[in-house]
Design a protein around this nucleic acid. Structure first.
Lengths: 165, 165
DNA sequence: GCCTTTTGTGTTATTATATAACATGTCGAT
DNA sequence: ATCGACATGTTATATAATAACACAAAAGGC
């Protein structure tokens, strides 16, 4: 993906800060252990792959990379690692894209919304605590008890707005 | 689907009002014509199927019903009709379920959020105009220009909260 | 340490979801 | 009546996800 978005800090974790990736992995390791789970090699590597990716990756894209590095070659290998990461708050599933992205703030539990750029396919994570509160109110008005929510916005990221069409 | 949700008006259009289905079809017909599109037999029937359904239906479930009634038997038949309905504001796609549901308010353009019951799989449409405004603000703060959004909540509907587990 | 249980990794096979590409048919305007 | 645009149907294929099983490695009791 040769995208025009890698000029500022909004594209992906790998380009957002100098050592953010290492820091995130560290946090992830800790977080998993606290939850009584193990960040095994495949899982860790899967998280790295997501962190290095520009935008979200499909399960089969992740699988391809894992396979190339000597891990298993079959779909469940990728799906299991990805699901593990999602369940432990280290990654998110982007349903509109049938894809996964590393969590930008794995250090604390949070509600996230995703801003998906139609032009360059980048995915930005935005805080959705407020939104979820509003959603919860709307749900309660309908007698619905909210557990969790998916909020995905589609549009144009900053870089792609600026860039000529 | 023998669900415990059909005691009140929150399950599906078919059970929500006395003649709401006929009224909705009427509205749909008009709306399509206004947009320069035709609500052909397959499309109309597809909408009816969605309206009669409890909860959302997968494309292949719709296809099965269409096929049984003498329409085409292959996936594109269902997908085309469903996509038509979605594009013309007569139905919604529920991404979390890989399914479709009839629009509850086809008479006016609106933003919708969906409340998906984990227990009985019912899908309730809720107004999301306010939510979308809030989302737009959050997006703008990130320099993102919002076009449209998917908001899907997962939890328990009223009936399933009341019902013993 | 050794055994048992649990968890994790890998496989093969299958299911589910969705689209591409093309042939034929129908509507509606001229 | 004929032309162009839109609709419908097909076959074939792409893409996404899971089920079921065999084996391996780690964790915990004793």
């Amino acid at each position: 993906m040769t995208s025009p978005t890698h000029q500022d800090g909004f594209c992906c974790a790998a380009h957002s800060g100098s050592d953010s990736m290492a820091a995130i992995l560290e946090t992830a390791e800790t977080r998993a252990r606290v939850q009584g789970a193990r960040l095994t090699p495949v899982r860790r590597r899967t998280l790295e792959i997501l962190l290095q990716a520009h935008g979200a990756l499909g399960a089969y894209e992740v699988l391809e990379k894992l396979a190339a590095e000597g891990y298993g070659t079959q779909p469940p290998v990728a799906y299991r690692a990805l699901n593990f990461l999602v369940e432990h708050g280290l990654a998110h599933r982007i349903r509109r894209l049938n894809a996964f992205t590393a969590c930008a703030q794995p250090d604390h539990d949070h509600r996230a919304a995703f801003l998906i750029c139609e032009t360059c396919n980048s995915v930005t994570e935005a805080d959705a605590d407020l939104l979820c509160r509003a959603l919860d109110q709307a749900a309660q008005a309908a007698g619905f008890q909210l557990d969790r929510a998916t909020i995905e916005a589609v549009g144009q990221c900053r870089a792609c707005q600026d860039a000529p069409e």
